[in-house]
């Protein structure tokens, strides 16, 4: 069975369309999710860094909650909560309640919150590893704390966190496969559709797995290029410690 793989279904234009459409959705989810995740990461790290009353404990609670519970349950909760809040309409033909905020939006928001919580911690550890003397240099030149954060700590921290942030993006891409479970038509969703029609489970899963492998590998390569372009010459190799 293992050595008689059948990939002829890949030649079927319908399945090709499905996979491409699914791929498009997956890329859209992960693209928007990554941007939101980075915004949450920077804002959250700033809130904790500046010790902002009320916002800081709330941010910490958010991190603790999202990091210690399954992203799938977070997604399902968000999906049903929004419909419970009355943000739904009743389909006239089937009589079924359909949430107003699309499944797509729920997936993007839940991924942004889950991976954003990780991003906050990643950026915070980056800020903590900015040398104390560099900050002191800024203070002595009359920079305010906000200016030091914006011009000195954040730019250095973001560079230092590229490797960790890359794994976070990869995690986001892999987690995005759960979108299929709230009927968002991502690549995972269409792949399961194809298995239902063709019964070629192994073959379809291999293709699906390769698709994710290619996406994540491209992201890692891109991140490496970015890291290279943003390298601080002479910094990090023990030159400035």
């Amino acid at each position: 069975m293992l050595f008689s793989l059948d990939f002829e279904w890949l030649a079927d234009p319908l399945y090709q369309d499905w996979l491409l459409e699914g791929l498009g959705t997956t890329l859209a989810i992960t693209g928007v999710g990554t941007i939101l995740m980075l915004i949450i990461g920077v804002v959250g790290a700033a809130i904790i860094h500046f010790n902002i009353p009320v916002a800081k404990p709330l941010t910490i609670i958010m991190i603790d909650l999202f990091r210690n519970t399954p992203p799938l349950v977070q997604l399902l909760f968000l999906y049903f909560m929004l419909s419970d809040l009355g943000m739904s309409y009743t389909d006239a033909t089937t009589g079924e309640r359909i949430p107003l905020l699309s499944g797509f939006a729920c997936v993007v928001i839940s991924l942004a919150l889950y991976n954003g919580s990780i991003a906050i911690e990643v950026i915070r550890s980056g800020i903590n590893s900015v040398p104390r003397q560099t900050v002191e240099g800024g203070i002595s030149l009359g920079y305010s704390r906000a200016q030091i954060f914006r011009w000195i700590e954040l730019p250095i921290a973001l560079r230092l966190t590229i490797p960790n942030m890359t794994s976070n993006v990869v995690s986001l891409i892999k987690t995005s496969a759960q979108a299929a479970l709230v009927a968002v038509t991502d690549v995972m969703f269409y792949a399961t559709q194809i298995t239902l029609e063709t019964f070629l489970n192994l073959e379809v899963m291999i293709v699906l797995w390769l698709i994710y492998l290619v996406i994540t590998t491209l992201v890692v390569l891109l991140a490496k290029q970015l890291a290279k372009a943003l390298t601080i010459p002479g910094f990090g190799a023990g030159a400035m410690k």
Binding site: V170, I173, K174, T175, A177, Q178, A180, M188, M205, L208, W209, Y212, L213, T216, T217
Partner: peptide
């Protein structure tokens, strides 16, 4: 192994 989504 590491780069495959768990759901897949």
């Amino acid at each position: 192994l590491r780069s495959s989504p768990w759901l897949v």
